[in-house]
């Protein structure tokens, strides 16, 4: 641990301020709470919202797991772990079940989370309505008035034009029938995990200076029409080439020598656990 800096880098007053913001976010599920986002030594747009949440919550007894795109070994996950290690000395793990705080970018782990775990998601664009309205001043009013017609219209038009809803990741959810929220760029595959969960989900957007939350056992429904149900990415008939799982989110890869297409679990530690490697 680098003694030149405070435990968990940020000064205590700022950490307290961030924790207060988190409490407000938990009290109003799905509502984006503004906060005075601090600059970190990591790129703004590289997970600084999530890192600020992690840093403000972490204590010496916590066990941290960081994943990026499902992988513990991805360069950004490694970099974030290294930074938190530099200023806290907390234990890190790759095992989902061992972690008390899991920071993630673009995935929710395959292993179901428990009520003593917090999942911290990094968010690039917290505003779900941004795809229909560019101005923050206007989207804020739309949320206040629960004016979500343009969003529904977007989904409807997509259906009419293409026969499918063409949104991929960042597929919006309605939280407790009140706020539409952006689940961050996780695949639709992970959306159902947000609903009525055991764990607390915290979302941090550093550059956009917003924090929001889905507390345990909160209703979080992916937007869909009565006659057109929500549809996840499907990997029907495909399985992980390493562990054989058929019910996980798969990364597609090519063998350039044979031109063959292969699939592999995006959650690398889950894959290793299934194979008994860790």
């Amino acid at each position: 641990m680098n003694k030149n800096y405070n435990f968990a880098f940020i000064d205590e007053g700022s950490k307290r301020e961030i924790r207060r913001t988190i409490l407000k976010a938990v009290a109003i599920p799905g509502y984006q709470v503004p906060f005075g986002s601090r600059e970190l030594p990591i790129g703004r747009g590289w997970g600084t919202g999530g890192i600020q949440i992690t840093l403000s919550l972490i204590g010496p007894d916590d066990v941290l797991k960081v994943i990026d795109q499902g992988s513990d070994e991805s360069v950004n996950a490694v970099n974030i772990k290294k930074f938190v290690g530099l200023c806290t000395d907390v234990r890190t793990t790759v095992k989902t079940s061992e972690a008390t705080i899991i920071q993630t970018r673009h995935r929710i782990p395959e292993t179901p989370l428990r009520n003593d775990q917090i999942l911290v998601l990094q968010v690039p664009i917290p505003e779900p309505l941004r795809i229909v309205e560019a101005s923050e001043e206007k989207t804020k009013k739309m949320h206040a008035e629960k004016d979500y017609a343009p969003m529904w219209l977007l989904l409807y038009e997509s259906l009419i034009k293409y026969g499918k809803i063409t949104l991929g990741t960042e597929y919006p959810l309605m939280v407790e029938g009140r706020y539409i929220m952006n689940p961050s760029p996780i695949p639709k595959f992970d959306n159902p995990k947000l609903n009525d969960s055991e764990c607390l989900y915290l979302f941090g957007a550093g550059r956009e200076k917003k924090i929001y939350a889905i507390p345990p056992h909160t209703l979080a429904e992916s937007l869909a029409f009565e006659d057109v149900p929500f549809e996840k990415e499907s990997f029907k008939g495909k399985r992980c080439r390493l562990c054989g799982s058929e019910d996980t989110y798969l990364d597609e890869m090519f063998d350039s020598s044979t031109g063959e297409k292969m699939y592999q679990c995006s959650d690398t530690s889950y894959c290793q656990e299934v194979r008994g490697c860790i």
């Binding site: 795109q69 360069v75 949104l167 991929g168 760029p185 990415e233 499907s234 990364d251 597609e252």
Partner: peptide, 13 residues
Amino acid sequence: LPHYVTFQSKLDA
């Protein structure tokens, strides 16, 4: 940064 997961989802769509 890698965008494998998001790009996979885009491909799927």
